[in-house]
């Protein structure tokens, strides 16, 4: 047997149908906030937008940034994992060769086409090096030309910081 919970519908009466009680209640709330705003200015529910900005949530996916090594070069080793995971094919990488035997590879070119990017964050999940992140707390700012929507190595590295992740795990 299926249990059915029967809920009684409220019966409309004249006093509920004219909404007078609810209208007065709502006006009371507006009046409360209005007087708070011009007197004490405490417990405000609005933000004074251009002067004051709301903090971004911790997991906000913003403008990409490339993380750096201790010497300031990109952590990225051009493994193309982000480009492989990317559903909109917006990442273009060209690999170059580095001297260090434990790095070997670096992105000579790392470009994100922000006209294509959908900010899904798959690239961040895919990265085995903690080299690309989207926690820059920055929106991508619209541009006037298509060329300006392409972000290259330098742009992405400018936002970057140091990362502690180590390739190959603890004992490599």
């Amino acid at each position: 047997m299926v249990k059915v919970k029967v809920i009684e519908r409220p019966v409309p009466t004249v006093s509920t149908e004219i909404y007078l009680k609810e209208v007065l209640k709502g006006m009371g709330v507006s009046a409360k906030h209005f007087f708070q705003g011009i007197t004490t200015q405490k417990n405000l529910v609005t933000t004074q937008y251009p002067e004051e900005k709301r903090p971004y949530p911790k997991r906000f996916r913003g403008h990409h940034r490339l993380m750096k090594r201790e010497d300031g070069s990109a952590r990225c080793v051009a493994c193309y994992m982000c480009a492989t995971a990317c559903p909109s094919h917006c990442i273009t990488i060209e690999a170059g060769e580095r001297e260090e035997p434990y790095i070997q590879k670096y992105p000579r070119k790392f470009e994100i086409d922000y006209l294509k990017c959908v900010f899904c964050g798959f690239c961040v999940d895919a990265c085995p090096q903690d080299a690309i992140r989207m926690d820059s707390d920055k929106h991508r700012i619209p541009a006037y030309t298509r060329q300006d929507e392409m972000a290259g190595n330098i742009d992405l590295l400018k936002l970057g910081g140091l990362s502690q992740a180590r390739q190959g795990g603890k004992w490599s």
Binding site: V77, A78, C79, K105, P128, G168, G169, S172
Partner: peptide, 11 residues
């Protein structure tokens, strides 16, 4: 094994 698949051409 170094598990350096990200920089390995065989991956």
């Amino acid at each position: 094994h170094p598990v350096d698949c990200p920089i390995c051409d065989k991956a």
